[in-house]
Computed example of a mutant assay.
Amino acid sequence: MKPEAVLIAGPTASGKSAVALALAERTGGVVINADSMQVYGDLRIITARPTEAEEARVPHCLYGHVDADTDYSAGRWLDDALATLADARAQGRLPIFIGGTGLYFRVLTQGLAAVPPIPEEVRAALRAEAEGLSDAALHQCLVARDADGAARLAPADRQRVLRALEVVESTGRPLAAWQQAQGPAPLAPERCARVVLEVEREVLRARIDARFEAMMAAGALDEVAALAARHLPAARPILKAHGVPALTRYLVGEMSREAAIAEGQADTRRYAKRQVTWFRHQMKDWPRTHPEGALETLTAALSGA
């Protein structure tokens, strides 16, 4: 049976965008973003979103459609992705999902827990309280309310710790209890052409470092300065985008430009390592390929070869 969608995952700087663009041009497809930072409109350069020229070559969806002052979740992404998927099917276009956020691929192919909406007053109260707490202190709050859930989250994973606190505070049940009642999967994995791009570690590290330098030359610092001028609440996810914390510190005189670039590169390398670990453990059954062979591999899968 011909695949009904293409799913391209891989760590940052692995060449996913080039593969997706070439495949969309070859098939008349639409590129759909599955990266949690590239949804934000404020940061095109430093999140490595496709350029305007690339977006003009084929349809691109779910890039830059969310304001920075938004707590965008996997659930909201899935809602947006389902609407985009329906549009692609109506137009007879091949949907090509591409990104490095493993959780987005999981909810797309495994379904999402039916957690009730969090009342805005609960969300606002918890996030206001969290503003004055360190990562470790906030994590201890979760330990007191949901010890099992806290054990599965690193203290530095502030956004997910907050999400777990919101769920238990609002519903009286830990997040894991809701996750056991998983909803239906929007896309059956076996009916998709799936691939995880793999790049040798040292090659990937070099790509990340070179790309960060290119981002700086392209205006990443101006982008971060404009974001900082908005004075967003510290808990907003976009403020954790790789390179943003270090460049923000440079802008206020807390570190040198060279140190900020080095920290931004190191932060991105650490993130890539976490992505690779996720793909290895959570997406074991996905085929692997080098970026150079991905286009032909996916084309063959689409043709049934």
Rank of each mutant, 00 (worst) to 15 (best):
A241Y: 00
E202C: 02
M216W: 05
T84F: 02
A114W: 04
M37C: 03
R207M: 04
V276G: 01
R26D: 12
R249T: 02
Y72V: 09
P3I: 06
A22M: 10
R211A: 13
A154K: 09
R269S: 10
T70P: 00
I118P: 01
A144Q: 13
P119C: 04
V122E: 06
R280A: 15
E292G: 04
R76Q: 15
S170E: 09
T101S: 15
A266W: 10
A137I: 12
R280M: 07
E121W: 12
D42H: 08
V167E: 02
A124E: 12
G75Y: 04
L298H: 02
L165P: 00
L239D: 01
D148R: 15
A206V: 03
S303T: 11
P155D: 13
D209N: 11
D135A: 15
Q265E: 11
E200Q: 14
G172S: 13
A74L: 11
M215F: 10
S303M: 13
D71I: 12
E121S: 14
C61F: 08
P95I: 09
A301Y: 01
R249N: 10
E166C: 06
L7Y: 02
R93V: 09
G132I: 12
A34F: 06
G10Y: 04
Q110M: 07
E213T: 14
V31I: 11
A241N: 08
A300R: 15
A137T: 10
L251G: 09
L204S: 01
G293C: 07
L142Q: 03
S256T: 15
E166V: 08
R270I: 04
E263Q: 14
A83V: 12
